[in-house]
């Protein structure tokens, strides 16, 4: 337990020192959000309708910037070897890494997505489902990112994104749908429940698979 807290502290410290870990997704998000009105239309009605999807897609794409961070540095500098040599249970450690990565790469964007109210004319009453769906949906995406990152370690291939995006489709669909439902006055709680179910169901599976994938690099 002390061991895990030590790793948690260490991860936090490393991420907070590495400003690019949270600034890049934020900058990416802001750039994209301000490009949509310019590229599509500045008509409030059009933007309002597109906003739920645009926000979700942008969040999804911005995780592509950061998912490599979960393991690649640890792989390069030998930290993963030391973890393996420590004979500790890797799944909890990997879970901590995913959690910290989520805090630094997803949480700021989720908070920033509030800005869409004035940038994309997103209706205020949609903020609650937007924030809730992002809070529950993005951890699943970070899990997929961890798996993709673990599998494509050391190689800058397209394999990671090619694996990650199709996996994330259900989350994207359920997330945007929750917002659209709520804006149309339909109860969106079933979508939130489904997102939670997907997270709970996939968490052990993907975690297990990521640990397995990580170990494959040390055979």
């Amino acid at each position: 337990m002390i061991y895990l807290i030590k790793i948690l502290k260490k991860e936090f410290l490393i991420y907070s020192r590495k400003s690019s870990s949270f600034i890049s997704p934020v900058v990416f998000f802001l750039i994209s959000i301000s490009l949509y009105p310019i590229g599509i239309s500045n008509d409030p009605d059009i933007l309002k309708n597109l906003a739920p999807g645009l926000i979700w897609i942008t969040v999804l794409l911005s995780t592509l910037i950061s998912f490599q961070n979960i393991f690649s540095e640890d792989y390069e500098d030998g930290s993963i070897e030391l973890l393996l040599a420590s004979r500790q249970n890797l799944s909890l450690i990997v879970l901590i890494k995913i959690f910290v990565n989520w805090i630094f790469s997803c949480l700021p964007i989720i908070i920033l997505s509030v800005s869409s109210v004035f940038l994309l004319y997103f209706p205020q009453e949609g903020l609650k489902p937007l924030i809730i769906s992002l809070l529950i949906g993005t951890p699943t995406i970070c899990l997929f990112g961890a798996l993709a990152g673990a599998l494509s370690l050391g190689k800058n291939s397209i394999t990671g994104p090619a694996l990650m995006l199709p996996l994330s489709l259900p989350v994207l669909i359920l997330g945007t749908q929750a917002i659209n439902y709520s804006l149309n006055g339909i109860n969106f709680s079933s979508n939130i429940l489904l997102l939670t179910a997907i997270l709970v169901f996939l968490l052990p599976i993907i975690l297990f698979a990521s640990v397995g994938a990580l170990k494959l690099h040390f055979n």
Partner: peptide, 17 residues
């Protein structure tokens, strides 16, 4: 396993070994 953005003291303190 040395972390470039941690100081020597932190690297030692947080050394998982």
């Amino acid at each position: 396993g040395l972390k470039n953005n941690l100081s020597p003291r932190e690297n030692i303190y947080f050394d998982i070994r």
